[in-house]
Structures are given as structure tokens and as C-alpha cells.
């Protein structure tokens, strides 16, 4: 197990395996998102209160879940990188940040578009909305901090500390709708019976599709990050000749 792990984590091996798996991830993500789109926009019945307007659910909820999932991945990878001084872990954190930031921006923007007709406002300083905005600032802070270092190793370590600190925000986002009496409703997907299966399956397809999309884009970025961290000229030459 460990030898397998070390082999996978070795840059040349990882670079090659990642290149081979990206098409599979992309295809699976594309098919799941296409199924989710058709199910969510065409097959799912309208909601009894929001009518067709509830279909924003199918892009808002997966974006929001991914914004948190990507942060959790990034923070755990950063912690592993700090503790075990593992270059590949730092690379995972660095490659995840821009993807997570974009998912967070999507969650905030689609929530805003949804809030206008239904709640009657684009934005309120509700605990859920505010903590999600803080998540966006954490991502941007992480990216800004990284870009302020010329040395990659120092950038990795300093930004990893910030990523680890920010994980405290994740339970706040998740439980904000439970702890505070506010306008954002509770979790539909985690409440049994809150949504019939005819409406739920497209959301699950979209969620799985978005997760695989993250995997595919992460691997593309990771290949670059691995090359940036590689000092072995012999292997780089081999990659670049192709």
C-alpha cells in the first residue's frame, strides 16, 4: 500500500497517471451534468410554491456544496503538506483554490439571482450568506498570499497555514441555518423527505457531475503544479520532449 502510494506520489508517475485519467473524469462529468440538466430543466415537475423558478436549485446547490467540498480538500491537503512536507499535497491545495473560488462565486451569484424574485432581495446579511462570502474572501486571501511570494516553497507553507485556519468557517457555513434564526432555509438534500425523488435525482446527478468536473480540472492544474515543483532535469526533459 505504502509503496504504491509513494510511487503514485512520485512526480513522473503522477504526471502520467493524471494525464491518462483526465479524459475519463471529463466524460463522466459531462454525461452526468447533461443528465442533470435534462432532468432538472425538463423532466422535474415545477415546485408547488416557486413554480419553474425553483430550477435554479440545480445549479445553486451543487455549486454551494462544491465550494465547501473543495475548501475541505484544500485545507486537508495543506495540513498534510505542512506536516509531512509533501510537495504533491501542497500542489493539490494550490490547484484547488481557484476552482473553489469560482464555485463560491457561482453559489453566491446564483443565490442572489434566486433571492430576488423569491425572497424579495438580492442580498441580506444573513448568517449563511455572510459565512459563504467569508469563504470567498478566504479563497481570495489564499490566492493573494501565494502570489506575494516568489519562492514556491515559502508560498506553499505560508498559504497552507491560512487554508488550515479557514477550515473553522466550514462548520459555521453548514450550521448557520440551524444556529441562527434567519432567512436562508435548511438543507433540502440532507433532510429526508424534503424533496421527492423526481426532483432530487437531477440534483444528485449535477452534484456528482460537478464533483467529477472538479476532479478533471484539478488534475489538469495539478500536472502544471507538479512540473513547477520538479527539480529533476532528466524527467522534465522527458516531459517536454513529448
Amino acid at each position: 500500500m505504502w509503496t504504491w502510494f509513494h510511487k503514485l506520489a512520485s512526480p513522473p508517475h503522477f504526471y502520467r497517471i493524471a494525464g491518462l485519467t483526465i479524459p475519463a473524469f471529463s466524460w463522466a462529468a459531462g454525461l452526468l451534468v447533461a443528465a442533470g440538466l435534462y432532468g432538472g430543466l425538463v423532466l422535474a415537475p415545477p415546485d408547488y410554491q416557486q413554480g419553474e423558478g425553483f430550477r435554479i436549485f440545480y445549479v445553486h446547490v451543487p455549486s454551494a456544496i462544491l465550494s465547501m467540498f473543495v475548501y475541505a480538500t484544500m485545507a486537508i491537503a495543506a495540513a498534510i503538506g505542512l506536516i509531512w512536507r509533501m510537495k504533491l499535497a501542497h500542489a493539490v491545495a494550490a490547484a484547488s483554490a481557484p476552482i473553489g473560488a469560482w464555485f463560491t462565486a457561482c453559489a453566491l451569484a446564483t443565490g442572489s439571482i434566486w433571492g430576488k424574485p423569491m425572497w424579495g432581495t438580492w442580498w441580506v446579511w444573513d448568517a449563511r450568506l455572510t459565512s459563504e462570502l467569508i469563504l470567498l474572501f478566504l479563497y481570495l486571501g489564499y490566492l493573494g498570499l501565494r502570489s506575494s511570494f516568489d519562492d514556491l516553497q515559502r508560498a506553499d507553507r505560508a498559504s497552507a497555514v491560512l487554508a488550515v485556519i479557514g477550515i473553522v468557517n466550514l462548520p459555521v457555513i453548514h450550521y448557520s441555518v440551524v444556529w441562527w434564526n434567519s432567512i436562508h432555509q435548511g438543507s433540502t438534500l440532507l433532510t429526508p423527505g424534503a424533496m421527492p425523488i423526481a426532483m432530487k435525482w437531477p440534483a444528485l446527478c449535477m452534484l456528482a457531475g460537478f464533483a467529477l468536473f472538479y476532479g478533471a480540472v484539478l488534475f489538469v492544474r495539478l500536472r502544471g503544479e507538479v512540473v513547477r515543483r520538479e527539480r529533476s532535469a532528466a524527467w522534465l526533459r522527458e516531459v517536454l520532449v513529448k
Partner: peptide, 19 residues
């Protein structure tokens, strides 16, 4: 979209543009 076209389509367009 049952009168919600001005909200539903921009939300979808935005997300897919970002992807």
C-alpha cells in the same frame, strides 16, 4: 420558465460560463 426566464437562464448561463 413560467415567468422566471429572466432569473433561471442567467443563473444557468453564468454557472456554465464559469465552468
Amino acid at each position: 420558465m413560467g415567468g422566471y426566464a429572466a432569473y433561471v437562464w442567467p443563473a444557468y448561463a453564468l454557472v456554465f460560463a464559469v465552468l
